[in-house]
């Protein structure tokens, strides 16, 4: 809580609830992400952290609660004391301010790395092919993938694909980027290159919400760590607080279990 108040809020989640087939996945979640902050959401599988992330850009529609990004309510507009759902084209516009990076990369396999990055700017920002390609090359250079710009996804390693996916998100100049377990599908030796790109982004002041199992990354880069379990935020605080002196028993159990696993595998 201490650090969140220092920055202007970029993403605010209030009272988010979501259930799938009578299974309550999110039971009322409030989180605030300050401008330029990196928030890491950790927690056991099934704790609802990925669903929460997907609620931010309305890939999942919350059953209740609101998402506010840079002051604007996602997916709704306030009319006569009610929140009225906006049209598809407005939600598309809102989503452009929120980048997303997926666990399984989801690059478009029929397009080259460059085309993957240039496609959306070209389609929605009205850029010419030349302008869009220039923008795409600039973003690929940021993730050190410019040399492979003409490669298709199948010709790239998982780490390279994920870096292209990050460039694709960056090309829309988002105000915040959501990372959904960005390194979970990678071979261990490829995790580092992706985390490095994310560290650089955090250092540049990009606002980021990261669902991750990489405790080391959370410890080093997070401005704030959120521990979720059973569809609720159990504890939130600075990395030192969460990893050093967790207040809740469940947090403590999770941290020691994960630390144990990391020690065993490393």
């Amino acid at each position: 809580m201490s650090t969140a108040t220092s920055a202007q809020p970029m993403v605010q989640l209030g009272g988010i609830r979501k259930s799938f087939h009578h299974l309550d996945v999110l039971k009322g979640v409030d989180i605030e992400v300050g401008n330029g902050q990196t928030i890491c959401i950790i927690g056991p599988s099934g704790s609802g952290k990925s669903t929460l992330l997907r609620c931010i850009n309305h890939l999942e529609l919350p059953d209740a609660g609101v998402v506010v990004v840079d002051g604007e309510v996602m997916g709704y507009t306030e009319k006569k004391g009610r929140l009225v759902a906006v049209r598809a084209k407005d939600i598309d516009r809102q989503r452009r301010t929120v980048g997303m990076v997926f666990q399984r990369f989801n690059l478009f396999p029929h397009l080259t790395a460059l085309e993957n990055v240039a496609l959306t700017p070209r389609q929605v920002l009205g850029l010419s092919r030349k302008e869009a390609n220039a923008l795409a090359e600039e973003q690929l250079a940021r993730v050190d993938m410019l040399s492979r710009k003409d490669a298709y996804a199948r010709q790239l390693s998982g780490g390279q694909q994920q870096r292209v996916a990050i460039a694709r998100a960056l090309a829309m100049k988002p105000k915040v980027i959501l990372f959904d377990e960005p390194t979970s599908a990678l071979d261990p030796e490829l995790v580092g290159e992706v985390l490095q790109v994310m560290k650089d982004l955090a250092a540049e002041g990009m606002t980021m919400v990261v669902v991750t199992h990489e405790m080391q990354f959370a410890r080093e880069c997070a401005s704030e760590v959120v521990f979720m379990d059973g569809g609720r935020v159990v504890e939130q605080g600075s990395p030192d607080e969460i990893f050093g002196s967790p207040r809740h028993e469940r947090t403590r159990a999770f941290i020691s279990r994960v630390a144990h696993e990391t020690a065993a595998s490393g």
Binding site: N57, L59, D92, R95, G99, M100, R104, F108
Partner: peptide, 12 residues
Amino acid sequence: GQLEAASALGLP
């Protein structure tokens, strides 16, 4: 996942 990626990018 292709559709999700496109949605997340705000592609119409």
